[in-house]
Design a protein around this nucleic acid. Structure first.
Lengths: 367, 367
DNA sequence: CTGAAAGCGCTTACAG
DNA sequence: CTGAAAGCGCTTACAG
C-alpha cells in the first residue's frame, strides 16, 4: 500500500487539501466539527504528513544536529540521555554527527552548514577549536554548547559550576577535621580545571586553612604521573590527610597510590573526585565526589537551543548548573597523629598481593 | 543572503534547471564541458541542493535511523564510532533515537515507521522485544541489528562469535597449564551467555579436561553475588587456578574477590574476561580478555544496511564477527601445589587495607 | 546533449 | 469557515 497523501485524506473527508492542511497546522479557523472529522480520517488511515514536503513548503527543517566526540565517555551517554528526553517532546529529531578527529572537525561543521539540514546545533565539546562553530552561529544558525571543559567562548553554553563544586568538597573535608588537604591538578590549560583549582584555594581559605603550595601537584590527568606525585606527597612527614582530584578517573589513581603506599582509604587518607561517573559508586571504597549533572546539562542545553530556534534572544553568558557533593566512603574524619607509616609502593608484580577494585555497574548486562 | 536554488545556478551557468539537475545526479548524458562549467558555478557559489526538495522529488530520504539504548555503555560508543565512520562516506545522515525505557519502545518504533524518515534502521539491541522491529522489516523497511545479547531473531544482524571467543580463552588457559578452570556465568537467559558457556565446555573438552560441575557458578552479572560465589570457590581444597567470567565487569568482581581472599592475580588465580571494554587495559593487573570488535561490528552493520537499502537480498543469518584474545597480565602459568592458603575476606571497612584499582583511561580528559 | 513541462506532498495568501 | 491556485526546490520522462 502506497503512503497516503494529503489529497487522499481530503478526498476521504470530502474536503479540499487546503482545509486538511489547516487542520494539520491546527488553525483555529477550521470548524471544530470539520476538524474532528479530518482528524478521525487521518487516525483511522494512519496518516502522517510527509516530512520532506512539509519541510520544503514551510522552508524549515525538523532537525537539530548534535555533534558528539567519537570517544567512550560516560559523559556523552549521560548528556545524550538528557538531550533525548527533551527533544522527543519537541517536533524535532536529532541528527547525530560524530567528530572522530579534530582534523575533520571544521569540514564536518562545513558539511552541516551546507546541508542546511539542521535548525540548530547542539555540541558536546571536546578539545576542538570553537571558531568554526562561532562563525556558523554568527551566520545565523543557533548553536548551544555542552561545555564540559569550560572552553571560553561567546557561544551560548551550559556548564557545571566547577568552582562552587570544589569549594563544597573542601568544606566537607574541613568539617571532617582535615587541615592538610592536597590537590592533584588536571590539565590546567582547561578552564574547568582552573575553576576547580580556584574552588580548592577559596575552599581552604574559607575554612581558615592556609594553602601550602607543596600540597598542589600537577597530575595532568595522567594516572602514572599521578601515582608518582601522590607517592611523593605521602612520603612527607607532614603528609596530607586528604586529597582532592580534579576528576573521578584521576581519583582512582590517587586511591591506587594511597593503597600502594600501605595506607588506607579513608582511614589514613580521604579522597574526593569530580564528575560522579557511573563506576564511582562501585569502587572500593565507593568514591566521594562532586557530581556533574550531565543529564540535566543535556536537558538545559536542548531547551536553550529550542528556545533560540523559536526566536529567543538573550545571550546571558554560560548557564551554570549546580553540582552536588555525593558523600560516599572514601572520605572520613581526619586521622589523629601519630600517623601510620607509609611504605614505598612495592615493585614488580610479585611484590605484594595486588590491589584490586570491584569497579563496574552492579549489573552489567552485556556481553 | 538567501540560499541559492537550482534555478539560480541554471541562470548563472546560462542553462536550464534540467541540465543542472542532470549534473547534480551526474548523468552521463551531459556534455563534459557543460558539466564542468556547472560544477564550477556551484562550487564558487557554495551551492548545495535542498535536501527536502530532493527527498520529495526522488521519493526517498537520505536518513538512516539508529536506535541506541539510553544507557552508559562503552559498547554503544564503540559501535557508534564504527557506524559513523561508514555512514559518513555515504549520502546518508544518522537520525538518533534513544530508547530510554522498554515501555516506550514499540511506540518509538511506530513513530519511526510513521515518520517515514528513515531509509533503514540500525538497532543496537538491548533487552527490548524484537517483534516491533520484525514487523517493520517485513513491511519493507530494512533493519539491521547489532545484536550484542545474541537475542534470537529473523532479522539480519551482526554479532560476535561468542562461542569461539570463549573456546580460545580456554585454550590459552590450558596452554598455561591450568586444569581447574571455573566459569562464572552471566545471565543464562541471554543467548550470548549460552554460547559463551558452550565455548567454555568445549574448550575444556578440547584440552582433555573433564568439566567439573562444581566449577560452574551462576553470577547473573551481579557483582555482590559473584564475589560470594568466587569466595566459596576459593575456599575449596581443590579450588580453581583460573576463572573465566562472562564479561569484563564481571571479571572485575572476580578479581576483587580473589584479592579479598588474600590471593593474588595472576600468581594464584588467573582471570579472563569478555568484551575488552576500555577500562580493562588499565586495571591492576590489566585484564586478559576476549575482545568483541565493537567498532567493526558497527561498520559491518552499517555496510549491511546500506547494501540492503540498495536492494541486496541475501538474508544469510547473523554475521559472526571474530573476537580476539587480548592477553594481558591477569593470566599466568598455573601455580604449583601446595597452594597458598586462601583466607576468608575481611569484614568491615577497617579490617584490612582496602583493595583498589587504578581503573580508568590513562589520560582522562574530562572534566 | 539540452530544455519545457509536469509532478513530488505540503503550505499559504487570496477569494468567496 | 472552505476552496482554487501558486509556490517551495528539486527530478524525470518527453521532445527536440
Amino acid at each position: 500500500m502506497p503512503k497516503l497523501t494529503i489529497r487522499d485524506i481530503a478526498q476521504l473527508a470530502g474536503l479540499s487539501k487546503s482545509t486538511v492542511s489547516l487542520v494539520l497546522n491546527n488553525s483555529p479557523k477550521v470548524d471544530p466539527a470539520t476538524r474532528d472529522r479530518v482528524l478521525e480520517v487521518m487516525r483511522s488511515h494512519n496518516y502522517t504528513p510527509s516530512t520532506a514536503a512539509t519541510a520544503l513548503a514551510k522552508g524549515r527543517t525538523p532537525f537539530i544536529g548534535m555533534i558528539v566526540p567519537g570517544l567512550t565517555w560516560h559523559m556523552v551517554a549521560a548528556v545524550n540521555w538528557g538531550v533525548a528526553s527533551v527533544i522527543e517532546q519537541s517536533p524535532y529529531e536529532i541528527i547525530l554527527y560524530t567528530s572522530t578527529n579534530e582534523k575533520d572537525y571544521s569540514s564536518l561543521v562545513e558539511r552541516i552548514r551546507a546541508s542546511g539540514l539542521s535548525a540548530g546545533l547542539l555540541v558536546v565539546t571536546h578539545d576542538q577549536p570553537l571558531d568554526p562553530l562561532e562563525k556558523l552561529h554568527r551566520a545565523g544558525l543557533p548553536v548551544v554548547l555542552v561545555n564540559t571543559l569550560g572552553t571560553p567562548s561567546t557561544l551560548p553554553s551550559v556548564q557545571a559550576d566547577n568552582y562552587e563544586g570544589t569549594r563544597t568538597a573542601l568544606r566537607h573535608l574541613a568539617e571532617l577535621g582535615h587541615t592538610r588537604i592536597a590537590c592533584v591538578q588536571g590539565l590546567m590549560a582547561y578552564e574547568c580545571c582552573q575553576e576547580r583549582y580556584r574552588g580548592y584555594l577559596d575552599g581552604l581559605s574559607n575554612a581558615g586553612i592556609e594553602a601550602d603550595p607543596e600540597l598542589t601537584v600537577d597530575g595532568s590527568f595522567h594516572p602514572p604521573t599521578i601515582r608518582e606525585r601522590v607517592t611523593e606527597l605521602l612520603a612527607r612527614r607532614d603528609r596530607p590527610t586528604a586529597i582532592v582530584a580534579q576528576n573521578d578517573n584521576t581519583a582512582y589513581a590517587v586511591m591506587q597510590a594511597v593503597i600502594d603506599c600501605g595506607l588506607r582509604v579513608p582511614q589514613d587518607v580521604s579522597v574526593v573526585g569530580f564528575d560522579d561517573i557511573a563506576s564511582s559508586a562501585d569502587t572500593h571504597p565507593p568514591l566521594t565526589t562532586v557530581r556533574q549533572p550531565f543529564p540535566e546539562m543535556g536537558k538545559a542545553a536542548a531547551r536553550l537551543l529550542l528556545e533560540t530556534i523559536d526566536g529567543a534572544t538573550g545571550d546571558a553568558g554560560p548557564v551554570r548548573m549546580s553540582t552536588s557533593l555525593i558523600v560516599r566512603e572514601s572520605t572520613a574524619r581526619a586521622a589523629k597523629k601519630p600517623f601510620r607509616k607509609a611504605r614505598p609502593p612495592a615493585a614488580g608484580p610479585d611484590a605484594a598481593p595486588r590491589t584490586w577494585s570491584g569497579l563496574g555497574p552492579n549489573v552489567s548486562r552485556t556481553s
